[in-house]
Design a protein around this nucleic acid. Sequence first.
DNA 1: CGTTGGGTTGAGCTTGTTCAACCACCGTGG
DNA 2: CCACGGTGGTTGAACAAGCTCAACCCAACG
Lengths: 250, 250
Amino acid sequence: MAIACKAAFTGKGKAIAAGREARPLPCLHCPVKAFNVCKPLEYDRQKELFEIGVQQTWRQRQSLFRAGDPLGAVFKIISGIVAVSERLADGRRQILDFFLPGEVCGFLQTDGKYSFDGEAITDVKTCSFDRRRFDSFAASHHDVAEAVKTALEEKLQQVSHHMAAVGQLTSTERVAHFLCKLSITYSEHEMQTRPLLLPMKRTDIADYLGLRLETVSRAFSKLKSRGILEFEDDEIVIHDPTRLAHLSGL
Amino acid sequence: MAIACKAAFTGKGKAIAAGREARPLPCLHCPVKAFNVCKPLEYDRQKELFEIGVQQTWRQRQSLFRAGDPLGAVFKIISGIVAVSERLADGRRQILDFFLPGEVCGFLQTDGKYSFDGEAITDVKTCSFDRRRFDSFAASHHDVAEAVKTALEEKLQQVSHHMAAVGQLTSTERVAHFLCKLSITYSEHEMQTRPLLLPMKRTDIADYLGLRLETVSRAFSKLKSRGILEFEDDEIVIHDPTRLAHLSGL
DNA sequence: CGTTGGGTTGAGCTTGTTCAACCACCGTGG
DNA sequence: CCACGGTGGTTGAACAAGCTCAACCCAACG
């Protein structure tokens, strides 16, 4: 499973069915989640849902949607990671959330336009839904509507917690916090956590944490020098999860 | 109307009906909003809703709910302001949002407990709902469920924008941004904006913006010295809204 | 009239930013 | 095959933004 998940990230490798059937559905390669992280839908309902969407692929750094663009699809991620961000006029960028396989992004709108930017951090596969059809599907299926609502609540909560981190923690605490959270999120998505895959670049992490990439790099070095973690290519081995968690103010 | 709203904040003064009838409903004193900021419910539905709640009053600095407490009511604010915040183990506090009259707070949960702290910034009146009854009311009334969903989306969006501010703006920009947003929010709630009432203390603003109260104070002084704004008791006169907006990165 | 709470301001310090150099890796084209 | 440039990452030195600590002011209140 862990290997399958790494494949889902990089976009390479063969898809593996994780459901109750041999024949995989578009979004069942890796974590089987309904809308976002929570409340998995029944397999059959999930199947119905995918039948109203189309599959799309995106290259790393490609934009799925831009803030201000007239509304298009909502995207359920099959593999890869999408960063949803807000960009200021002068170019400063705040990444609000990383969306993992199984989650849906691109649903927030302000009078008919996308509210935020969505960019592929890795190569990405999506199941893309016409917004109207998605909404009416949700409206006519109570369990889907429920899943959507729960997902919204979860997201609101996640973003809130993240804001506390950005607003209150020091740079090293923020990086530690980021790694802890990432590890937790991975395990919720039934993905490998040891070693921990770090698919995003330093810039992305910095823009997510409200820091400069140099500061993030220094924080990593500091954690490394304290023997808390170690690097292996684009993966991280966390030697001392307890100390890491303690550092992150949790 | 403006005066009525100021009364709604301070908790003093007489309630004024703003609806289609003379006899005011609990939450109709000031801004007539359904769940949060958006999608006002029809008057009759609103009335039904209030009949399943009870009215409560809270003194300034009193806690409505605490993170980790077993779940109790959800609170629709009639008058006053509630700050919802997250507190770290060492006492650091991040205020996530200020809830104004008409909005509902205390709905986010993590396995049966409140997720965040809710504290009365001013004296507060609420219409408090038993969570189960509120949910089942929403479940059986499609318009209410719709309002709840829209409100969740709006909140998610608000918090996201705020995170971009906290993560990317400088101290002065943050304070300017805060004032701009506050002014906009007030006008959405049909409350007076000139002069702008500032019911929260410097500490609260600081904890909201991820700054120290001294830094907030200095930012105010800087804006004042540049002739952009001026103080009058606990109110602010904004002389140059354009420059303020420009400073806030909007 | 002293106390308390909220706000402002100053001086020095800490943290994180800026700017720059440098390295490792990788794919490309001569 | 190697030279080359481009990307992503690390590290250092100087600087600036914001924090800490402290003094001080003012209004409200017992």
